[in-house]
């Protein structure tokens, strides 16, 4: 007896219908890089996988006015190869380059990364940094949820049975804004993030910070923007001292949430350095 059945959806409508089937517990399948590992370790909680990886509507990468739209079934490789995203979402492209070797980048999808809900996911901090909305469909209708609000804890999301993330949208960043992504792993490839940081920012014509985003990954059980760090940057002139102060504030904010865990002694030092470094990359103007 097979552990589960497989069906391939040709459209979002068909996928939503299949996922809504009350007779058969179904779960979306995109790149497969998470699902196939999970069924190896624990018996599946679903009876059917609905393959959404080739639904054309979920493969788009396009600019729609002041927004960028990225389909949930877009792979990391497709992100890396997108000229539009290289221009508008550097942090997302850099994160995609670091997610794993080419085979993982060819299979793994942005939607899958979000839906899996791992705290160490590399694709998610950039989305939160970009203020992305996840567009979720189910048989009752469609809703748009900030990506950060979709994540409720380690490997937990607010997604319900029958939900399908179809695409993400995020506003084009202000003129002159830059973003970056830094990953710290135990190895240079095929490594889970010990910590990562997505950051973005822009300076006014007077050289003061007018836009700042700081999103550490693998730091909190629930990913979010470090608004306390962003606020202290706004209106300031970039300087080494500012970056270090911001880094220290990020560490403080992390420990305030997590308390002192086994890894805190390490992470509080490393996060300060990574946040400072990310801000340096974003705000240092090369000539």
């Amino acid at each position: 007896m097979p552990m589960f059945d497989y069906v391939r959806a040709k459209s979002v409508a068909e996928a939503v219908e299949l996922l809504a089937d009350t007779q058969c517990v179904s779960r979306p399948l995109a790149g497969g890089t998470d699902v196939l590992v999970q069924v190896r370790h624990t018996p599946p909680t679903f009876q059917r996988l609905v393959d959404v990886s080739r639904i054309p509507e979920m493969k788009i990468i396009e600019r729609q006015g002041d927004e960028i739209c990225v389909g949930a079934a877009v792979t990391y490789t497709e992100i890396i190869e997108s000229a539009l995203l290289r221009e508008t979402a550097t942090c997302l492209v850099e994160a995609s380059r670091l997610v794993g070797g080419p085979a993982i980048a060819n299979a793994g999808t942005l939607g899958g990364n979000v839906a899996n809900g791992a705290a160490c996911a590399d694709g998610v901090p950039p989305l939160v940094c970009l203020d992305a909305l996840a567009h979720v469909r189910n048989s009752a209708g469609a809703r748009a949820v900030p990506v950060a609000d979709l994540l409720s804890g380690p490997h937990e999301t607010m997604l319900q049975r029958g939900d399908l993330i179809t695409h993400f949208t995020f506003p084009v960043m202000p003129d002159g804004a830059r973003s970056t992504f830094i990953k710290l792993g135990r190895r240079n490839a095929q490594a889970i993030s010990r910590l990562n940081v997505a950051a973005a920012g822009a300076l006014s014509s007077e050289g003061r910070v007018i836009f700042a985003r700081v999103v550490p990954g693998s730091a909190l059980p629930r990913l979010r923007r470090f608004v306390e760090v962003e606020n202290m940057l706004i209106g300031e002139r970039p300087s080494e001292a500012l970056f270090e102060t911001a880094g220290a504030e990020a560490s403080r904010a992390m420990v305030a949430v997590t308390g002192r865990r086994w890894s805190t002694e390490y992470k509080e030092i490393a996060l300060q350095g990574l946040v400072a470094r990310a801000l340096r990359q974003v705000f240092t103007v090369e000539n």
Partner: peptide
Amino acid sequence: VDLRTGNTQ
């Protein structure tokens, strides 16, 4: 050595 993280290349 990355003095901020201990990462060694």
